[in-house]
Each structure stands twice: as structure tokens, then as C-alpha cells.
Design a binder for these strands. Structure first.
Length: 425
DNA sequence: TCTGGGGTCCTCGGGCGT
DNA sequence: TCTGACGCCCGAGGACCC
């Protein structure tokens, strides 16, 4: 096994729950769960809630009684707050190491190979203590020769509270094998529930079992991605730490509705709103879109299912709210069928390019563009200043009949002056 | 009544040109 | 002029991640 590379995965424990507890220390060691948008499913659980046997992603309405009986404190997801705390954690990690890949809101990979430290384990322990001391968020850290193994090591650290929150399999191949024999196939990063069900049928129960299968067989049944995972588990790096921020390929705004939406005008208002929000995200990232996808779906659990989408390319890439809404609504007209009640819809902007870098069409409306650009900038500035979208396109409507439920949201403690935590004298 | 949102990557298959 | 084989491109859809 090559040990020339060293990767760390820093993984926040029960992240959304930990964020809520930062401002509610009374909930430490008490059962806490966080709900998705629309209060639909459970997306984060404290260890106490996990111990009750309530699974990740469980529909809230199915577990409501049990949660109440167990006196679980519930929060509607407060995603701006979690994003803010996440950024503060990343700042601390970047101070400790130069090559960081922010993988998700609660996980970062770090390349440590070129970092000159006496002990990687000491480095990890010190970072863990710092994040706990400054921000009050507990993390688990895995150290290994590949990213997939670092993920597994962090998982091991998290599941064994008797160790100090850091688990390393560096420089010891027996450690790697023991870890793989411990890791169930369903917990391997890269094999989802569908693939692991297929593997279990074939008698593959642990991560170790995968490493005994021939490369060609793994690639044939689980594509090139399955093969990469297998190599990584064997200690052969097949993935790198992507410290450079790759430009996004798409920007989406999608939501579930609080009730089934059948009425065209209600759907139209929702789509126009999604398109406007997506357009403003697009401008915030300094990009233009080459096309727009609109999709609408019935509930996944109703008898009559329908899931349809339509795509409209722009003759010239744009960041203009008006043009994006117009194209998104043209898509909607193509796919709308009044015989169905829709539960979810969305707008996805694709073919993104940096502003100014795209090929202007022969018929570019240069004068219009200058004026509209200034108008869009002014709208964005006003909406950002007030923290809500005060200025809207007429099609979006004033009310939001389709709006999601969020009945248990905590205050945005760090992102809104009016919601700062208060300290009693 | 009530089952998330925002992404990436990969495969497949139809349309099209040669 | 028609037809089949082949490769390329691109959109749709699935699997996966947190």
C-alpha cells in the first residue's frame, strides 16, 4: 500500500443539531432533531434521537407522536444560520492547512502530504479542540492515505465515542484491513442504497469484501465510479483534493409545495418566483445562463404520478430576470396538464459562463444590455440590503399560496440584526 | 392531509451527418 | 436517390452525495 499521500476528513457531528445547540446550551445531551424545508423529513438527529431508532430522512408526520412522547426538541431547518457557522469552521481549517476542499456544509477534505508536522494525529487533535473551543461544534477527523478511507476513518471515530474524535490508519495496513472489515457495505462512500442492496444479494457485506472482487467486474456493474471507490479502499488514490473552486455547472431553485397545486396561475407564480431567485443567484456569482429547465412533479406517493420537464436554450446567454422568467414560463406551458395536482416544481439554469466571456450573438442588443444590467444590479442591491426580496417581477404575484411550511424555525442568530441572541443581565 | 433541496457525474438512446 | 452502419452530440433520467 502506498502511504505517500495523507488525507484528512473533518466531519461535523450531527451538524444542524450542533448549530442549534450552540445558541441553546440547555439542549446539550437532550434529544434534538432538525426538519427539512416544508417540515417534510428529519434531516439531522442528535445521538439521543438516533438511539430511539428514528432513521435519517424519516417523514416527520410518521414519527410525530414518537418524537413528542420522547420529548424531542424540533427545529425547522435554519439553513442561513448553518451556512454561517460552516464558513467559520472552514476559516479555522484553512488556518491549519493550505489545501482544503470544502466538500459540503459539514465536511472538508484536507491534503496533508506536504504539511510539515511532527504528528498528523497531534495536528488533528489540535484542530478538533480549536473548533470546539471557538465555535462549540464537535467534529470527527479521519486520517488515511485516500479520501474514501479518510471518510471511513472519520465514520469510525464518530461511532466510537471512547476515542478522542480522531482516528488514523496511516502507516499501518492492518489498520486499513480492520477498518474495511468493520465498515458495512451500505456505509461506503460511493455505494448508495441501490448498489449496496445489489452487492448484499451477491454476498458482499463489508467494504473489505469489495476489495476482493475483480476490477473489470466492479466497473461493468458499478461503472467507473464504482471502480474508483474500490481502488481508494485498497489505498490507491483515485480522487484528489479539489482545492480550486470549480465553477458550478448549474444553479437551481426547487421547492415542495405545502399542498397540491393544480391551478395554472398558482403554478405560474411559483415558477416565476423560482426563476427570479435563480436569476439573482446567477448574477451574484457573476455568471450568465445558456438555457433554462422547468420541471413539475406530482407527489411521489400518490397514485397518479407525473414528472415532466422542458428545456429552452437562449439565443444569447443572459442574466436578465425578465428573459429567464419568460423562458421558464414557456416551458411550463408546454408541460402543464390540468388533470394532475403538483407537489413539487423547480427551475434550473444551465450552460453557465462567466459574464462577458460568452460569444455575443450577431444581433446582440447592446444598448438594452447596458441599461438592463444597471437595472438588475440596482434590484439586487435593494433586495440584498433589506434581506428580503422587496422588488419582484409582476408574474411572481404578491401572495405565495404554494409556500412551504416552516413552523419551528430558530432565530437567524448570526445573519440578522433583529435576531441576535439576547444575554440576560 | 402530511415524504427536502441543491448539486455532480454517468449512461442511454434518439437525431443527425457522413 | 435510397439505405444501413457508424460516430458524435446532447437531452433525459438515474444514482449518488450531503
Amino acid at each position: 500500500m502506498s502511504t505517500s499521500r495523507v488525507y484528512a476528513l473533518i466531519d461535523c457531528n450531527n451538524f444542524f443539531v450542533s448549530c442549534e445547540r450552540v445558541f441553546r446550551p440547555d439542549l446539550w445531551e437532550k434529544p434534538v432533531a432538525v426538519l427539512s424545508n416544508n417540515d417534510g423529513c428529519i434531516v439531522a438527529r442528535s445521538n439521543e434521537v438516533k438511539a430511539l431508532g428514528i432513521p435519517m430522512g424519516a417523514p416527520y408526520f410518521q414519527w410525530k407522536d414518537q418524537l413528542t412522547a420522547a420529548n424531542v426538541t424540533l427545529f425547522s431547518g435554519n439553513f442561513p444560520l448553518y451556512g454561517d457557522i460552516s464558513q467559520r469552521i472552514v476559516t479555522l481549517i484553512r488556518r491549519a492547512a493550505p489545501t482544503v476542499e470544502v466538500y459540503s456544509v459539514d465536511e472538508s477534505f484536507v491534503e496533508l502530504s506536504d504539511l510539515r508536522v511532527a504528528s498528523y494525529e497531534e495536528w488533528a487533535l489540535s484542530l478538533r479542540n480549536q473548533i470546539w473551543q471557538y465555535l462549540g461544534v464537535p467534529v470527527s477527523i479521519g486520517l488515511a492515505p485516500t479520501k474514501t478511507l479518510a471518510k471511513a476513518a472519520a465514520e469510525y471515530a464518530k461511532k466510537h465515542p471512547d476515542n478522542p474524535g480522531v482516528y488514523s490508519i496511516l502507516g499501518d495496513d492492518d489498520g486499513r484491513i480492520d477498518l474495511l472489515k468493520w465498515l458495512p457495505i451500505g456505509d461506503v462512500w460511493g455505494f448508495g442504497w441501490r448498489s449496496s442492496a445489489k452487492l448484499r444479494e451477491l454476498g458482499v457485506a463489508t467494504a473489505y469484501d469489495i476489495t476482493t472482487l475483480p476490477d473489470t467486474w466492479v466497473q461493468k456493474h458499478f461503472t467507473i465510479r464504482g471502480l474508483r471507490t474500490k481502488l481508494e479502499l485498497q489505498g490507491v488514490p483515485a480522487l484528489t483534493v479539489e482545492a480550486e473552486h470549480e465553477p458550478q455547472a448549474s444553479i437551481a431553485r426547487t421547492r415542495s409545495f405545502a399542498h397540491r397545486v393544480r391551478n395554472y396561475h398558482e403554478l405560474e407564480a411559483a415558477i416565476a418566483n423560482f426563476a427570479a431567485v435563480a436569476a439573482s443567484k446567477l448574477r451574484a456569482s457573476g455568471e450568465v445562463a445558456g438555457g433554462v429547465v422547468t420541471f413539475i412533479r406530482t407527489g411521489k406517493h400518490t397514485e397518479q404520478q407525473r414528472s415532466v420537464s422542458a428545456y429552452t436554450p437562449f439565443s444569447e446567454a443572459t442574466e436578465q430576470t425578465g428573459e429567464i422568467i419568460e423562458a421558464a414560463l414557456r416551458n411550463l406551458q408546454q408541460i402543464y396538464d390540468p388533470d394532475f395536482g403538483y407537489k413539487r416544481a423547480g427551475v434550473v439554469l444551465t450552460g453557465l459562463a462567466t459574464t462577458g466571456a460568452w460569444q455575443a450573438s450577431l444581433f446582440a442588443r447592446q444598448q438594452d444590455n447596458g441599461r438592463n444590467h444597471a437595472l438588475m444590479a440596482a434590484v439586487d442591491e435593494i433586495n440584498s440590503k433589506y434581506g428580503v426580496r422587496l422588488i419582484k417581477h409582476a408574474t411572481e404575484g404578491l401572495g405565495k399560496d404554494w409556500r412551504s411550511k416552516r413552523e419551528m424555525r430558530s432565530p437567524n442568530y448570526t445573519g440578522n440584526w433583529h435576531e441576535l441572541p439576547k444575554v440576560k443581565a
